[in-house]
Design a protein around this nucleic acid. Sequence first.
DNA 1: GACCATATTTATCACTCGATAATCAAGAAG
DNA 2: CTTCTTGATTATCGAGTGATAAATATGGTC
Lengths: 229, 229
Amino acid sequence: MNKKPPTSARPKSKRLSPEDRRQEFIRKATEFFADEGFNGGTRELARRLGVTQPLLYRYFPSKDDLIEEVYKKVYLEPLESGWEKRLMDRSRPIRERLCEFYNAYTDAIFTRIWLRIYLFSGLKGLEINRAYVNVVRDKILTRIVRECRAAADLPAQKPTAAELEMAWVFHGGIFYYGIRKYIYEASVLEDKDKMIADAVDVYLASFTRIAEPRRLSRRSDRLQLAGED
Amino acid sequence: MNKKPPTSARPKSKRLSPEDRRQEFIRKATEFFADEGFNGGTRELARRLGVTQPLLYRYFPSKDDLIEEVYKKVYLEPLESGWEKRLMDRSRPIRERLCEFYNAYTDAIFTRIWLRIYLFSGLKGLEINRAYVNVVRDKILTRIVRECRAAADLPAQKPTAAELEMAWVFHGGIFYYGIRKYIYEASVLEDKDKMIADAVDVYLASFTRIAEPRRLSRRSDRLQLAGED
DNA sequence: GACCATATTTATCACTCGATAATCAAGAAG
DNA sequence: CTTCTTGATTATCGAGTGATAAATATGGTC
């Protein structure tokens, strides 16, 4: 919608292109709804934008349409980085790949805004949230399990339910770090990279134990624990 | 609705004791707000209770007071089981104690109602939520770390930041199982006990690796991974 | 039965919400 | 300047909100 071909050569942007204005509204609306929840009023939102409330309805047919735009922006943003390729680059150690992936992924989603929008929409049970969870499972976790199996010289196969569950617990442990920091606003270990590296080490170290219980004695390399018979 | 009192002498329950009625309101209000969020209207809530809306204000001065009661009920309920003692019973193996604790704890909090109320209030940044997170840290995680140190014959000391962080990741991984099941309503591994047992095994197996990096070669018992130099 | 305390409802207020129509303002083109 | 398009505002509507007061229904007690 680059409406006006300016008579002069350069784009004499006086006001702001309608589409740019719209995008700015979406961006600030994302911040607003992240703070206030989707029950936040359009008047308060307009006040933050520095405009009057009815103007919103020039750019969006209804509040729900605006919210829809917020959803799309938030959910698609972290997915449009090409992290899939690097996770499957078997020329590099699996540990390095996992650490790099989760460092990048959490750099994208560990923000107050993203996590809050994500949880707000999750509590509404929206389809886009279900879809995102499926993407995490299919595009991230199953690939992680597959790569771990390959790295451990286990035969390639569809991840078992238990393997997938362990990957979810691993993933959820990391994810919960973001929730603690940006939702609960609790103090966390400052060194996020170390947290991820430790979590990856723990997951990798135990991978075969869960995936292939018969390959190792389940207790052979576990701690010797007081009272264990 | 066991409202008919026998004419005989026994505990002469009238129509329903005012306090009981109040508790019933709180109980159903908890379900309601778990479904609709705390922005749910008092009229719709009253409709679910089978009464008219102004009646709520005979039992609670305001909607916020009712919500406060919901908070207290939800947050205090899972804490009033004496799980602290059993976690520190060193006559039993640490693995058994951890599994038993998390089985019981998740039996208490892994419900649609509890998790939704918890997240709704967490997103509001309420003091009671902060307090609960601190309780989890001080009454559960620090004790778990302490018991693990004892079980591994490590000297007793205040948990390091890294140890606490690993405990949080462990705890969060289990917690996220509940979120996936009851918030996202995604399919999870049906056998919750197995998920917990696996998570506990993973955590315990790696405990010394993180707690005391010098006790073991960090790579001695890890998988041999393709490409690792 | 009559009486009274209280549980419950009906009617209503002041306010906020999302949304719409009418009006005004600000540039661009002639 | 005048005209036209469009961005932006003012005023307002109808529905829904939490909350209050007055009126009514109900059960226990004498």
